[in-house]
Amino acid sequence: MNDLEHLKTALAVPAPDRSVRDAGRHRLQRLIRAEGGRPSGGPRLTWRGLAIGAIGTVAAGAVLATTTLTAPQDPGTGAIAPGDSSVLLPADTVLMAASSKVRQRPEKGGYWRAKTENAPFKYKTAKGYTVQATMRTETWITASPQVKGWRVFDMSGYAPATPADKSAWEADGSPTSWRVEWAPGFCEQVKVKGGKDCHVTVTSEPEHSVEPIKTKNSIGDLGGRPITLDQVRALPTDADGLEAALADRMPGIEKEELRDTIIFEAGIDMIMRLPVTAEVRAAAYEMLAGLPGVESTGVIADPLGRRGPSVATNADGADNVLYQLILDEKTGLPLATQTVEVADGGTSGASVVTEIGWTDEKPGLS
């Protein structure tokens, strides 16, 4: 079964209850943003296929809520703690300060570059132990009429997640590949409709790939729809206009109970993943500052231990889950996003930015 056939089978599942659908849609969107789940072998879900699946799943209401990414945590870093109350500035103050800082940043260079890292992707094997891999994504976009850009993926090979998993793996004969469910729970729904097996094979071999970006077609997505470089350049530079433009890309959003959460997440996507101008990025922060329900969560550490002010809103319309943005206080640029379980501080869907902005460096495409 190829990528599109696999996704069509998944999307043929009848829509579940509305609350389950909403939660699954946003969790899936964050999974895609974290750029995870690129297994090898079996029915291979490529990054392009996952992006298509994310858009289609929004429409079909398919749920992948049980597919979880777990970010590395160190209780000593206070990564999910409320932060130092002495520096707990209001969310709109934090976001307006970020707006002012990014508006002043120079935008010079031949390429727009963004590098992100994900939290480890984990799968439980049939023998009960867990294997995990990490992935880095690098995006290069240029205005050159010849070559528009590239997206570079580097996935480490899967390996036992903990010392205990390593012992179990050795007892299993130290295999180098594992057949696993890529979406536990959802697979059973697919099988009810007579769908194919919902497993993939992951291996210990690292993966490296380079995909060209043709900006006349799409350089990414915004609001669940593909967006071209020309469309990015035409985005409004004021908060109200930008919010209206996002709403226009998502028909029916005004009737959505989770409208503000969806706008919040789309605004962050714009800041982190698209080569918008400084003015548009500043307007995006101002738009976020004006959304109801956005709160400050203090100065915290991201999964790499870098500290910065953070804001969050209730994800999926639930009080026990937050979608959180961590900022670089000096530059106003994003450090990371993560989904936080309020009860225990656990994180999922973490996406960490290591580099973002315009540069005269050239991409290494070996």
Rank of each mutant, 00 (worst) to 15 (best):
T139G: 02
T139W: 06
I141Y: 03
I141G: 00
T142C: 05
T142P: 02
T142R: 02
T142K: 06
A143K: 11
A143P: 12
S144R: 14
P145W: 03
P145M: 06
P145F: 03
P145Q: 06
Q146P: 05
Q146N: 12
V147Q: 15
V147F: 15
V147K: 15
V147H: 15
G149M: 04
W150C: 02
W150N: 05
R151I: 04
R151S: 03
V152C: 07
V152D: 12
F153M: 11
D154E: 14
M155T: 05
S156D: 15
S156E: 14
S156L: 09
G157Y: 09
G157M: 06
Y158P: 09
Y158L: 09
Y158F: 11
A159G: 11
A159D: 08
P160H: 00
A161Q: 12
A161G: 09
A161D: 08
A161F: 07
T162H: 03
P163E: 09
P163V: 01
A164W: 03
D165P: 10
D165T: 14
D165Y: 12
D165M: 14
D165E: 10
S167A: 14
S167E: 15
A168D: 14
A168Q: 13
A168N: 10
A168K: 08
W169G: 00
E170C: 11
E170W: 06
E170D: 15
A171W: 00
D172S: 12
D172A: 13
G173Q: 09
S174W: 07
S174D: 10
S174M: 14
P175E: 12
P175C: 13
T176Y: 11
T176C: 07
T176M: 12
T176P: 08
R179V: 14
R179P: 08
V180E: 09
E181L: 07
E181R: 05
E181Q: 11
W182R: 00
W182T: 01
A183D: 03
P184Y: 01
G185T: 10
G185V: 04
G185L: 08
G185E: 11
F186P: 01
F186G: 08
E188H: 15
V190T: 00
K191Q: 13
K191M: 13
K191E: 12
V192F: 00
V192N: 04
V192I: 07
K193G: 13
K193E: 15
